[in-house]
C-alpha cells in the first residue's frame, strides 16, 4: 500500500474522478473530495453544487478577485462559472434531498458491511455537527465515499458494523480508498479493484468488514 500522504490523496481523487460523467451535478465534500475536480478527464464537464446555494461553482478566485458574497460551503472564497445560479438554502437542499444531484463525494470515519456511513461525530470527542451531510447521503442519486483505507494508527475504517452515530440509513454506493475500490451490493461489500502497489492480503489485513472478492478483480487504472 502507498503511504505517502500526497500520493494517497492523489490516487483517491483521480479514481473518484473516473466515476463522474459529463453533465453531472456533483456535490463535493471538504478535504480529499474537493481535489476530485482537479482530475476530471478533459471531455468531462460537471456542474458543482454547493450547500450554501450555488450550482455551477468554479475554483478559488485569483488573489484580488474575491467577493465577500461568493464563498463555498467551507467559507472560503469561490468563483461562479458562466451559467451559474445562486439560490437560498431551501432550494439548495431541494436539489440535494430531491434527488437532483447525480453524485455526492464525501469523507467517512467508518463504513460498514451494510453500506452504512458514519461521518459526522465522535461522541465526547469531536462534535462538528452534520451540516448538510445527512441530507446529501439521504438524497443524492449516488453516494461515493472517498477516504484513506485505514485510520492514522492503521486500524480499519471499513468494519462489520458502524460504532459511531450513522449519517443516514441509506446505503452508500461506492467506497474509494488509495488501496481499493469497493462496491456496496445487496450481497455485501464487493472488492472490485486493488490500488497501486497493493496486494489482496494487505486489503484483507486492513479491512475488518467481510469482503466479497470480485471474480473480475482488477488493478486500479491509476498511475502516480
Amino acid at each position: 500500500m502507498i503511504k505517502d500522504k500526497l500520493k494517497v490523496r492523489e490516487i483517491i481523487a483521480k479514481r473518484v474522478a473516473m466515476e463522474l460523467h459529463d453533465g453531472d451535478i456533483v456535490n463535493l465534500g471538504i478535504g480529499i473530495p474537493t481535489l476530485v475536480g482537479n482530475y476530471l478527464p478533459q471531455d468531462v464537464h460537471i456542474f458543482l453544487q454547493s450547500e450554501n446555494g450555488i450550482l455551477g461553482m468554479g475554483g478559488t478566485p485569483k488573489p484580488g478577485y474575491e467577493n465577500k458574497d461568493m464563498n463555498n460551503a467551507g467559507g472560503s472564497p469561490a468563483s461562479f462559472l458562466p451559467g451559474a445560479a445562486a439560490f437560498d438554502s431551501a432550494t439548495s437542499f431541494g436539489l440535494i434531498r430531491g434527488g437532483h444531484v447525480a453524485a455526492t463525494v464525501l469523507g467517512a470515519l467508518q463504513v460498514d458491511e451494510e453500506g452504512h456511513l458514519a461521518n459526522w461525530m465522535i461522541p465526547g470527542k469531536l462534535i462538528p455537527g452534520m451540516g448538510g451531510a445527512m441530507d446529501l447521503v439521504t438524497g443524492a442519486k449516488k453516494v461515493i465515499v472517498s477516504m484513506t483505507h485505514t485510520k492514522k494508527d492503521g486500524s480499519a475504517k471499513i468494519i462489520p458494523k458502524c460504532t459511531l452515530p450513522l449519517t443516514s440509513i441509506r446505503k452508500i454506493d461506492l467506497i474509494v480508498t488509495e488501496a481499493a475500490v469497493i462496491e456496496v451490493t445487496e450481497n455485501g461489500l464487493v472488492l472490485k479493484e486493488l490500488g497501486p502497489e497493493t496486494s489482496l492480503e494487505e486489503i484483507i489485513n486492513t479491512t475488518t468488514a467481510k469482503l466479497i472478492v470480485s471474480d473480475d478483480l482488477k488493478q486500479m487504472p491509476i498511475t502516480v
Partner: peptide, 29 residues
Amino acid sequence: LVPQGTLAEKVRAGGFGLGGILTPTGLGT
C-alpha cells in the same frame, strides 16, 4: 444540531403557516 436541509425547511414551514415537514433525512439516526 439539526440537519441543514431540515433546518431550512423547519424555518420555511414556520413562516409559511405549516405545522412542520416530512423528511427522510435523519431516519434511523
